[in-house]
């Protein structure tokens, strides 16, 4: 079943790459979001998909009942999601600032330090 998600990951990467190569700065922000989703899904899928058995230890047991989902990539992704939020917010505010200071909505206008 993973092959479907491999395709989804490819499409998300393609969308992200396409969007960050645009000139409109809003599109670049959206592109970064796409890349974030794609990367998180990539890690998640490559660790194999498991249906309905999260890595939780049942009450009283010593270990989760196999075949449980791999907990390590999940921990990595969890922090990546939150950090991704921080980065996204930072980018949004940075571009907002650039737009307000220089009036630039085109990334090509930000090539030099003069405006």
């Amino acid at each position: 079943m993973e092959f479907i998600w491999a395709i989804v990951i490819g499409v998300l990467y393609a969308a992200g790459l396409y969007m960050i190569m645009r000139r409109s700065i809003v599109k670049i922000i959206l592109g970064l979001s796409f890349l974030g989703y794609a990367a998180n899904l990539l890690i998640f899928v490559v660790a194999r998909l498991t249906r309905g058995n999260p890595p939780l230890v049942p009450n009283g047991a010593e270990a989760p009942i196999p075949p449980y989902a791999d907990p390590l990539p999940q921990a990595l992704i969890l922090t990546a999601i939150v950090i991704g939020f921080g980065v996204q917010a930072f980018t949004i505010v940075l571009f907002r600032r650039a737009y307000r200071s220089c009036g630039a909505d085109d990334i090509d206008e930000l090539r030099t330090t003069e405006h």
């Binding site: 990467y13 393609a14 790459l17 645009r22 409109s24 737009y99 630039a104």
Partner: peptide, 27 residues
Amino acid sequence: LPRFGNLSTTGARVRSAALAIAGGALM
């Protein structure tokens, strides 16, 4: 935030699309 302009030329868009699709396919 600024308007959602179409700033790139069609040629540039096709070129980026080709690159992006190749990159996505690689992933």
